[in-house]
Amino acid sequence: MIMEKIAELFIILILVSVVLNVSSPFIKFAIKLYSFQSLMLAFYILMGAVHFNSINLYGSFVITVIFKVILIPYFLFKTLKKVKIDKEIDMYIGIPEAVVFAGSLTLLSNLIAQKIINTGITFGSFVFTISLATFLIGAMLMVTRKTLFSQIIGFLTIDNAIFLAANSITHGMPLLVELGVLFDLFVSILILSVLILNLRRNVAV
């Protein structure tokens, strides 16, 4: 019971970090938030691992920490340093509207999750709601912001949401598949960083 509460705390922190991301125009802060959000995801996986005593989930915890908490933010910071921008300049909708919008997306995903949920879900329907909300808010970040970095952050948020969903409706994907997915994600971030640096020479990022 207590474990369930602690796990729910981690998940709420994921949602909080996403909404904080919506409300802040600073890119450095957004990358830090992403790292924090991944750490919370990793802790959530760790709770599951302790609860079910599954080696698969312990492995999943380790690779999530290595790739999502350490490597990807590290390379994003490195790219950011070279590009020398620290603030989101252009947005299609202002910050207050975006926050209200994020709130209503959360409500919407609660409604949707109530409809599809049936029994057999690890920590209740709660996790699925949050993962759906994270997914939608990540998509909103991609659409409403113009800076290329924000698009990457939105993409990474969507990815975290899918990992959360995988860990909520099942006990995580098989380790081999998860490793492949994370490696692909990591390489795609590297390639996107290269592209940002190259685009920087031609146009404002």
Partner: peptide
């Protein structure tokens, strides 16, 4: 899962 990994790798 491996299908997915391969498909994403083609993009990269």
């Amino acid at each position: 899962g491996i299908y997915w990994t391969g498909l994403e790798a083609t993009t990269l």
